[in-house]
Design a protein around this nucleic acid. Structure first.
Length: 415
RNA sequence: GCGAUCGUAGCUCAGUUGGUUAGAGCGCCGGUUUGUGGUACCGGAGGUCGGGAGUUCGAGCCUCCUCGAUCGCCCCA
């Protein structure tokens, strides 16, 4: 025991109800993604380090202190993906996926960030991801948000989650706004929190969503992005919001919602909840029109979002009861072969079935009970005069299991 | 990276101002009872008290270090 290696900090071994909830989130995402005709892609888990450092931004926390980077045996600097978007952008360029533009893609899987673990935050965590690449139109933003909205509804968690929406404007708007913010906050620098004094240098937009009351006093009077928006950027945002209204997606304008990563432009959004403590963002994303160029590709407009599977799974809670299943028990060793045949027959027609083969008959029944079996099927010797099968319902008021029993009888060809 | 709380059998936890062989419930294994099961009863296995060092005649209970968990900050999905 003491010399057994421990799991890595911030990783999880997921089992039982949590694993079921996790799978439920992924399955729901797959279903919805097909409804919206997003194409499935599979991405490598690691990339050259520069894929992330050039796109996400050298000064961001993600790149400067949270990446799992290492030299491989060829002395190349590689990094375990801290997010999906940069790798997808790289793939888009290197594989010539421009020919499919506008390209709607979706994926999910593990990401890695060296952070302090806490509720809903892990070093290996999992996200759903959806992107539309090569579409400059606000309809793409709307499409993505409508899909996200439906996903949350189908997961049954939309009630506790609200869509916070903002625009960062185009590149010029964003830069002018940023300069104005720096000027504004610099004037009161001494009164800001220590964190925000730091942010002033590296990521001034982030001061806007600071939780520190010392900052919030100044945030209210800070320059607003709306005053810097070009006419074009205003029209774009207007098209997004009216599209959402037309599609019946509720949203809330949040002037202080910004994105931490450098590549974002125009639309920025987060679906947030207050039921997850400090990790309230459950799905977030935005438009990243500048990203492809930072990786050396052609100017390519794109939008996307990612959602934390663990966080969604926590909100989903217990997933509904599984379909009833049959447990097959051989009454004695002579019936083992018949039991195996029976299991195969049941499963081949889609009836969930499990075997109970450990211990004495009583023990087998106990195990089956704990497994939640709704029907026990005892199998006897082939030549037993009482017949091959003995049914025993496990449900108190057995309505629903009648159907299961009927299906089982049909599958086995008995009356 | 910063702060706070916590870390005793597989699980949830008790363990009195530091003092003889560390306990319970559930679970697990075996058995009895039982109409082939969800009951009851009997018995059993399982812990170097996260790890290391120190204080003390003596530490699960005190100190330090370390690892991990949890909750915030930060960051982000």
């Amino acid at each position: 025991m003491s010399n057994t290696p421990k799991a890595i900090r911030g990783t999880q071994d997921i089992f039982g109800a949590e694993a079921e909830a996790f799978a439920h989130v992924v399955e729901t995402f797959e279903r919805v993604r097909k409804l919206y005709r997003f194409r499935r892609i599979e991405m490598p888990v690691f990339e050259k380090t520069e894929v992330f450092s050039r796109s996400i931004g050298e000064t961001t926390d993600v790149v400067s202190k949270e990446m799992y980077s290492f030299l491989d045996r060829g002395d190349e600097s590689l990094t375990l993906r801290p997010e999906f978007t940069a790798g997808i952008a790289r793939a888009y360029i290197t594989n010539g996926w421009q020919q499919h533009a506008p390209l709607k893609v979706a994926t999910h899987g593990p990401l890695f960030r060296y952070e302090r673990p806490q509720k809903g935050r892990y070093r290996q965590f999992h996200q759903l991801d959806a992107e539309i690449i090569g579409a400059a139109e606000p309809q793409a933003d709307v499409e993505l948000l409508v899909m996200a909205d439906q996903l949350l509804k189908e997961l049954g968690i939309a009630d506790g989650v609200t869509l916070m929406l903002n625009t960062l404007g185009d590149g010029a708007s964003r830069d002018a706004w940023r300069a104005s913010l720096v000027e504004y906050f610099r004037a009161v620098q001494g009164d800001l929190s220590e964190d925000s004094q730091e942010r002033l240098e590296r990521n001034p937009l982030r001061i806007l969503d600071s939780k520190d009351p010392r900052d919030q006093a100044f945030v209210a009077g800070a320059p607003k992005i709306d005053d810097f928006l070009s006419g074009e950027a205003q029209d774009f945002f207007g098209a997004v919001t009216s599209g959402l209204d037309a599609a019946g997606v509720a949203w809330t304008r949040s002037q202080s919602l910004v994105r931490g990563l450098d590549y974002y432009r125009h639309t920025a959004f987060e679906f947030v909840t207050d039921r997850l403590g400090a990790q309230g963002t459950v799905l977030g994303g935005g438009r990243y029109d500048g990203l492809m160029e930072s990786l050396g590709g052609p100017a390519t407009p794109a939008v996307g979002w990612a959602a934390g599977i663990e966080r969604l799974a926590m909100l989903v809670g217990e997933v509904g009861p599984q379909d009833g299943h049959v447990v097959v028990i051989a009454e004695n060793s002579g019936a083992e072969a018949a039991a195996l045949r029976t299991l195969k027959q049941l499963r081949s027609v889609g009836i969930p079935a499990n075997a109970s083969f450990k211990g004495n008959p009583k023990r087998r029944i106990e195990v089956a009970t704990k497994d939640g079996a709704s029907l026990l099927l005892f199998v006897r010797d082939d030549d037993d005069p009482r017949g091959l099968y003995n049914f025993r319902s496990m449900l108190r008021e057995g309505n629903s299991d009648d159907l299961l029993a009927m299906r089982v009888r049909a599958a086995l060809g008995i009356e």
